[in-house]
């Protein structure tokens, strides 16, 4: 495989695709949203439990999608769990900027950590929306929107 594709489908991504973390629905939640990527048919449903201190106490998702969207959703939940809503919003902004190619996680300061594994999508315009779907859904849920779409 080419370096570009190898970089995208790293073992970390393949692992989160095979064994997505926090993959379950959540009956009692404080925030909830549906994300849809009409171009690919990717769908996910996101649940959040934000406590009185503004901490993301629990987060989970269910849905169908490609490896990129599933792994991204899985890693998103792992990244925001235990963080404040404000920190989660910062991560959304940074992840979005990285996917669009306006933030290079290797040179600019950021909080992305392992999430930088998705930096490669900026070279694959057709796949950017796969990587960002979970994050747009998170943003929608935190702002009280029930539906979001990448289109």
């Amino acid at each position: 495989m080419n370096a570009r594709t190898k970089q995208l489908y790293q073992e970390l991504v393949l692992d989160h695709n095979r064994n997505p973390r926090n993959y379950r629905s959540m009956e009692v939640h404080s925030h909830h949203a549906h994300g849809h990527n009409p171009l690919c048919g990717d769908r996910l449903e996101l649940f959040l439990k934000v406590d009185a201190d503004g901490l993301v106490a629990d987060v989970s998702f269910i849905g169908d999608g490609c490896a990129i969207s599933k792994a991204s959703a899985s890693m998103m939940t792992a990244a925001v769990k235990g963080k404040t809503v404000a920190d989660a919003e910062t991560l959304f902004q940074e992840f979005h900027a990285m996917s669009m190619g306006t933030l290079d996680p290797e040179s600019a300061p950021n909080h992305l950590g392992k999430l930088a594994v998705f930096a490669g999508v900026r070279d694959l315009p057709a796949r950017v929306k796969c990587a960002t779907l979970a994050w747009h859904t998170l943003d929608a849920a935190l702002h009280g929107h029930e539906q979001t779409s990448t289109e």
Binding site: T5, Y9, K70, A126
Partner: peptide, 13 residues
């Protein structure tokens, strides 16, 4: 395997 992953890998080839 989702078709979009299939498409990306095949394009790579």
């Amino acid at each position: 395997v989702h078709p979009h992953d299939v498409g990306t890998v095949l394009d790579d080839l």
